[in-house]
Every structure is written in C-alpha cells, then in structure tokens.
Write a protein that binds this DNA or RNA. Structure first.
Length: 854
RNA sequence: GGGCGGAUAGCUCAGCUGGUUAGAGCACUUCGUUUACACCGAAGGGGUCGAGGGUUCGAAUCCUUCUCCGCCCACCA
C-alpha cells in the first residue's frame, strides 16, 4: 500500500501552537536544571511591510542555534521584537495618505502619528505572524517594540547621559539633506550613485573653472588653487572682481592642498554652503557662507533672479545665461557620484543646518579593541577589516531627524534662548528652571532621533536596561548576533559602542553574518523595488522546513547566494524522504509488536550484524560531526552531513537491509537520533514524526529532548562494510552494462581477504545484488576486483545473446563509419569539425567493441 | 582613489587549518514499480577547479601577476 507524501499544510500550524502553548520558548519554563545561558537578540524587522527571504535566512540561523542550545540543556533565550524604523515607516505612511490626497502637514503631527500607529498595529502583527510561520522558537513573552515605554525610557536615559557628558552636541554644519523627506540624514543613509553628467568650463575673471554643478556658482565665495601651482601663484591672496550672471562679484583666491592641479584647469570655485569639500576649505580660510539652495530643494532669495527655481531648472537657466554672456567655454561629458537618499532615492543636497551630533571617536576606540582582542568574533573573519576601516575613520554621527515618527529628542530650550543665549537642557520632562536665566518656560526639541539610536541599545534595552534586571544579568552579553553585512555599520558597530559605553561589556560574543539572498538575476532583493519574495507562499507550497534548508545548506556565511524554486523543491523532496523513512519505521515497529507467522521469530531480530555495527558507527560519527559543526557555527556543513546520512546511508542502505535482516530496535534508535539532530534545521516535520512515536504530550515534545551524545569509537565496521557496499555496486554495474534483467538471479563467486566478511552477510548480498554468492575461484580471470575481493559473475545466456547482438550492430556501425571516412568526397568537402566528429565516433565505437569482446 | 568578494560538471553552489581516483542538488543517458518514498530506486556520462608564474614530495586549497564579474568605502570640483 502506498503512503501519502508529506503535506506540511495543516501540520505546521498546530505544531507551532503546541510549542508556543508549552511555554518552552521561555527559558524560565524549561524542564531540568539548566545552568549555562544562551541568548540571541533578534534583529528587529522594520514594521514597514512584509518579511522577505532575507529575513527568513536570519530567522532560520537563529532558530537553529536556539533549538540546538535548548536541546543541549542550556537556558536558551531568543528575544524577538520589531523596529519602528523612523524614516522608512514615515515614508510608507506618507505614501499611503498621499493616495487619499492627504499630506502630513495638513493633518498635523498628532493625527499623522495616529495613522502611523495604526499602520504599526497592522504590519507589526503581520510580521510577527510571519516570524512564527517560519518556526521561530523565540520567547514572545519577552517581545519588544523600539517605541515601547520601557525602550523609550532607555533611549532617553542613554541620550541624557551622553548629553551630560558632552558627547552629544548641537552644531551648525554641512549635512546631507533630503528635500523630499525634509530631514537631515547621517552619512550612512546616503547612497552614492555613479551618474553621467557634464563638466562645464566657465570663464571666471582671468581663470577658467571646471565644474559639474554650475548652479552653485551664485553661492561661490572664493576661488581655490593648489599652493604649489606655479601657474596661479601670483593670484593667491588677491581679491578679483569677476563677471557672473548676477553681475560683478568680488572673490578671494585662496591656496589649499585639497585642490588637484591636474583636474580640470586646476582652479576650483568654492561654494562652502553646498559642497562638503568646499565647506572644509571655507572653515580653514574663514570664508563667508552663502546659502543659495533651501530645504525644499529650490534656490533661495540669495540666488537673486534664480530664486524659487528647482536646482535642475536653475542649472539650465544659469548655463543658458553664461552662454549668452559668452562666459561658457565648453561642456564635456563627465560621470560623477550623485548622492541620493537611501530610502526614497531623491537627489540629496549638502546643506548648512543646525543638528544634533554625537562624538564618535571616544566610543569607537573600545569598540575597536573589543574585536581586536577577540572578545567579539566576527564570522566570517574578513569583515574584521571592513569594521576596523570604518571604525578608524569614523565621523561624528548626525542623530537628529526632522521627522515625526520616532523618539522625540529629550532636549528643552528655554523661551529666552534667543535673547539670553540660555543653554539647552536634556531631560525627560520639562525642566523646572533654566540654569542661565532662571526662566521656567521651555519648549521641547521637535526633532526625533535617528532610528538606529534606539536599535543600538537593543541587546540590553530588551532585557530591561536601564533597570538591573535578572534577565540582564543572566543573558547579557548575548551569545550570538545574527545579521547581514549591509547593516554592519548602521547597527552592529553602534550596538558594540553603546553596550561598551553603557554596560561596560560587549553586546554579543559572536557576530554571524549571513549573505544576502539574491534573486534569479543575482540582484539584491529589495522591498522598495518589489523584488523581495514573500516566503509564505513558498512555505505553503513546499513547507517551511524545505525553505529553511534551502536557505542554510550549501551557503557560506557572508557570501551572497541566489535562491531558486528548484532548490527549495529539492529540499522538499528530502523532507518527504524523511517522512517516508518514518512511515517505514512505524510499520516495522508495528510488525515487531505482532510478528506475522511468515517472519518467524526474527522480525525484530536483535542479533547484531556487521550492517548494524556499521550504522551504529555512522550514527555516532554523525552525532559528533553535527555537534562539532553547530558549536562552531558551521550550519551548512552540519546540515549537509545530515542530508547525506539520511538519504544515502539510512534510506539507501540501512532501510533496504531491514527488509532482509531486520533489527527494529536499532532502526528505531537510529531514526530517533536523526530526528533529534535534524530538529533544529527542520523543526516541523521532525516534531510531527516524533509525535507519531511519543504522542503529543507537552513533556514528550521533541524540542526539549536531550541532544544525543557521541562516544569515542573506532570505525572498523565502517571499513568492513564499505567492502561489501563496493562489491554490491560493482555487481550492479556489470548487470546494468550487460542489461541483465532486474529479477534474474546470477551466480557470484568471490575470493580474497574480504570473502569471510561478505559471506557473513550472504542473505543481504544475495538480495541487494540479486545474486547467489559463494566462495570459490573460477577458472577465468575475475570480472572485477573490489576492496580485497575478486569476483566472478556467471552471466546468463540471454545476456550473452544480448552482448552478441550489440557486437554485431557495433560492427555494422563501424563499417559504415569507415566507409564514410574512406570517401574522399566527404573528407575534403565536409567541414573539418564534422569529419573530426566522425573520426571520434569511430574511435569510440571501436573502444566499446573491444570492451564488449573482452 | 582605497578595500573586499566571486570565478570549481550544462545550471546553482559546497569543499575546514594543503594529502589517496575534486563533491552535492538540478538537468542529461539507460534500466526499473521488489515490504517506506516516482517529491522514488539502480547504474552511468560530464570538470586540465578563470589564466600565467612560484613554494612543496604533493596545490582547487598557500604566495604572486593578470583577466572578467559583483560589492563596499571615499570631500576629486
């Protein structure tokens, strides 16, 4: 009777419910005495939409590790949560409202935030449901959201401390400004995109200046040359009057090493308000700053007749004006890096703005040391270099955002600030009295913090900080941080700095970096581009276990990989294989309980054969291998070993042997060990199969079973058994090439040192190779030699006839080819490649014939 | 401009600190329904491990140069 294939639908959800109801996701409720703690902080997914396969990789890795350590008998804690994701979420909600023709400015901050909270409610749940569907065994009783009251308290505490220590300061600087998002951004939120543009050569008094942004010309306050440039030395320090499209203007000529004499003409126009490099020069030479582009991306009043125009419009107009005035010499094509908003892709404007910054160098120093000393280990190691490079060149972090969605900056300004220059105060609530003017009226800073500020506290804020909770003591530093390399700086680096600052300890001991899941074309999956794949439909089709295996097996940490549906289907097949082994085992178990007469007394035969010793050795080896690899975070190799064992040893050999020489007790033992070892990888199917053996009682669930232990052993049976396997394979090979009917039993004679071993398993060899094996040499030379044994097969007459037939047809084929090649017409006129091909065919045919004749 | 990664069977990729005939899955060829499984079984074909040079008894693995892809960082107007 045929068994049904494994159908994950309807199996997975009830199992997840059982796990969750058991309370075992919470380490406090795990049975047994547990001393060692193992903890993972889940990188909180943004509440901006849906989970994609990239998240699924992370969840799979973390779940494998958590389940493994739980079964090892540790207090395994995996803390889940979601991230408010400031700017990303605000954009989504703005777009949503835009469809209804509403702008956030119309409805005001309070109402807008209500909309965002509603969004968060909807998508936050959706995402946690998706995490559940992936089988994540995280402790939902400890779930957090970055804007929960206690996490907000942590943010405020951290900010105020840094503020009071002088590490957070307010400054007017050139920052990246997104005209669409209407906010400042940090350096990391800028993507430099190489774009084709033009290089404009403009007459500037006695000079010619090359620029890519002629529109900033009206904001120029100086001209710069290299100090050693002989061509221009005489002008340095002089004020020149130059003709511009806004009339004559006086510009100072400065000398600065930043100028590359080889680029363009070696003269640079300096626009301190709208170019980072020019800003630095402006600071060095105390140049006036003329802001000619506003926060809305349009030209300001200072831009005279261009005021109100978009930057691109102003560029065209100024170029036209320059041309009309005869000041434009030439335009060359030129590619340069355009800064664009990481979130909305709008072209950014470098802008002078008053923002809050965090001093990073003092925080970076211990963070560098932590990785250098090995207190934090990054997997793969090569990311150390990237980390160090960024940390060593770290710049101050612009942490204020002109957004509504996020943690409002806990800074208060005295009403008299403008008149009396009162210093701002950092406080959760409105301060009682101004330190400078003793005034009592304050207004809170309207800006919010960069979303990564709160994420930076994540490992300890979710465990209760700033309170010294028991969780914090037990589970911090966490064991592993699992993430992808694209947020190494955004997040991982900042967590390390914050944890060392506020906790004086590292936030995690290991950073496990997974690769990005790429689409079919090898491109990064992206939610905003719509190339993200929703794992759920895939999981419904193939099962969550198959998805998880396809994301882990055959991948390497830090290495991006493509995912195809075929790969998922392949692992679905594997899961089904396991399912069917389960069917077989259950059947054998039933037979053992009530052995049918035909089976004699041997149905559950307990005699230990070489095959039994072999599978026991292999299982023991597997336990050791999987355990070692999981402990060293080599998930792919652990999983691969399991895959190979289950399919190619347990199923292909041991299960087949059971049909001849059963040892049901050992079969069950092996099978159950496999279920345990495979459980972290494929939790659903293994739990379902386990339930068939042990019921659905909470206490007997697979997820809390003890991890198998390996014993020290010699692999003697494995080596002996290999001889037998090789013999069987060799015989099958000969049968196949001689086209012996599958059912036809052949006589097999063997001789050699392994003969004895093989004969002890005579019934097995007979059945698996379809032969009648006996010891004894034949007079002719052996048909083959395999691992210390010569063997002779007596091929039946039919197959001899078959060979004769084949020989005859081959001979005809060879004759035909030879005739063709003897034909001069063919060899001279046909393409050389074709002739060559025919020659090759002939050689092959001859070789085959020779093989058959011998 | 600096740095990183990839290049292994037709395709997608494993291959740990150098060690016997370089692996897997899919695809392909032939055969097959016997006490689980056709989401299956058996047997097989297919690779000068990107190219050159070097170290070594021995290199896919270590060193070096080069080529082609991909990525990250960076104030070249």
């Amino acid at each position: 009777m045929a068994s049904e294939a494994y159908n994950p639908l309807g199996v997975e959800q009830p199992i997840y419910k059982r796990w969750e109801a058991s309370g075992y996701f919470n380490p406090d409720k795990l049975p047994g005495k547990r001393t060692m703690a193992f903890s993972i902080s889940m990188p909180p997914p943004n509440v901006t939409g849906e989970l994609h396969l990239g998240h699924a990789v992370g969840v799979s890795v973390q779940d494998i590790l958590t389940r493994f350590h739980r079964m090892l008998g540790e207090k395994a804690l995996w803390v889940p949560g979601t991230d408010h994701a400031g700017i990303a979420t605000q954009i989504m909600v703005e777009r949503l409202l835009q469809h209804e023709g509403i702008s956030r400015h119309e409805i005001g901050r309070e109402t807008f935030l209500k909309h965002v909270w509603a969004w968060k409610q909807k998508y936050g749940t959706r995402i946690t449901d998706q995490v559940r569907a992936l089988g994540a065994s995280c402790d939902w009783s400890r779930e957090h959201f970055t804007m929960d009251p206690n996490l907000t308290a942590a943010v405020q505490k951290a900010f105020i401390q840094l503020f009071n220590e002088g590490l957070i300061y307010r400054g007017e600087r050139l920052i990246h400004w997104c005209p669409r998002c209407q906010t400042a951004l940090s350096d990391l939120e800028v993507k430099h995109v190489e774009e084709a543009g033009h290089l404009y050569y403009i007459t500037y008094g006695p000079f010619t200046v090359a620029t890519t942004r002629p529109e900033t010309k009206v904001g120029d306050t100086a001209l710069a040359v290299h100090p050693d440039d002989a061509r221009y030395k005489k002008y340095v320090g002089k004020k020149l009057t130059v003709k511009t499209t806004l009339g004559d203007r006086e510009l100072l000529v400065i000398a600065d090493k930043l100028v590359d004499p080889k680029f363009g003409t070696g003269v640079v126009k300096v626009t301190p308000a709208h170019d980072p490099a020019d800003w630095d020069m402006g600071q060095r030479h105390k140049l006036p700053v003329l802001q000619i582009i506003g926060e809305d991306g349009r030209m300001t009043k200072a831009a005279g007749k261009y005021s109100g125009m978009l930057v691109t419009e102003a560029r065209d107009k100024i170029v036209a004006d320059l041309q009309a005035m005869g000041l434009l010499q030439k335009i060359e094509p030129h590619t340069s890096n355009t800064p664009r908003c990481d979130r909305c892709n709008t072209v950014l404007q470098p802008l002078l703005s008053k923002q809050w910054f965090m001093t990073m160098k003092p925080l970076a120093k211990p963070a560098i040391a932590a990785v250098k000393s090995g207190k934090i280990q990054i997997i793969p190691k090569r990311f150390d270099k990237v980390y160090f490079h960024w940390m060593n060149n770290i710049r101050d972090w612009c942490i204020s955002r002109q957004l509504w969605w996020g943690h409002q900056i806990p800074v208060w300004y005295c009403r008299n600030e403008a008149e009396k220059g009162c210093a701002p105060l950092a406080s959760v609530t409105e301060p009682k009295k101004c330190a400078t003017c003793k005034g009592i009226h304050f207004v809170q800073d309207q800006d919010t913090l960069d979303t990564w500020f709160s994420s930076g506290l994540w490992t300890f804020s979710t465990l209760g900080w700033p309170k010294e909770t028991k969780d914090l003591k037990t589970y911090h530093p966490t064991s592993v941080m699992e993430t992808s390399w694209d947020i190494l700086f955004f997040w991982v680096a900042r967590m390390i700095m914050f944890s060392l600052k506020f906790r004086k300890e590292v936030p995690f001991k290991t950073v496990y970096i997974h690769g990005l899941v790429l689409d079919k074309h090898g491109k990064k999956m992206s939610k905003s581009k719509g190339t993200g794949i929703d794992p759920l439909p895939m999981a419904e089709k193939y099962g969550t276990d198959a998805i998880r295996l396809s994301l882990i097996l055959g991948t390497t940490p830090g290495q991006d990989f493509r995912l195809s549906e075929e790969k998922i289907a392949g692992y679905r097949n594997f899961i089904n294989k396991l399912w069917n082994i389960g069917n077989f085992v259950e059947r054998q178990a039933t037979l053992q309980k009530s052995p049918p007469p035909s089976q004699g007394g041997g149905a559950g035969g307990s005699r230990t054969s070489l095959a039994d010793k072999w599978i026991a050795e292999r299982t023991n080896w597997l336990i050791a291998d999987v355990t070692r690899n999981l402990k060293t975070n080599k998930l792919s190799e652990a999983g691969q070993a399991l895959y190979d064992f289950v399919w190619h040893e347990l199923a292909d050999w041991y299960v087949e042997i059971q049909k001849i020489q059963p040892n049901t007790a050992l079969l069950i033992e092996t099978y159950e060990t496999v279920l345990k070892l495979l459980h972290p990888f494929a939790p659903f199917v293994t739990e379902a199969l386990w339930a068939k053996r042990h019921g659905t009682e909470k206490k007997s669930m697979l997820m809390i079973q003890a991890w198998p232990k390996a014993k020290a052993q010699k692999n003697s049976a494995t080596r002996e058994f290999a001889k037998l396997q090789n013999l069987i394979i060799a015989v099958r090979n000969i049968r196949a090439t001689h086209k012996v009917a599958p059912h036809e039993k052949l006589k097999l004679s063997i001789a050699g040192t392994a003969t004895k071993t093989i004969l002890t398993l005579k019934p097995m060899v007979d059945a698996l190779a379809r032969v009648d094996v006996k010891s004894g040499k034949a007079s002719r030379k052996p048909d083959g030699h395999e691992a210390s044994v010569n063997f002779w097969l007596e091929l039946p007459k039919v197959s001899q006839q078959h060979v004769e037939k084949e020989v005859a047809s081959l001979q005809q084929y060879i004759q035909a080819l030879e005739r063709k090649l003897a034909n001069e017409n063919f060899t001279t006129n046909a393409p050389a490649a074709v002739v060559e091909g025919e020659r090759k065919k002939l050689a092959e045919a001859k070789a085959k014939l020779q093989q058959l004749m011998s």
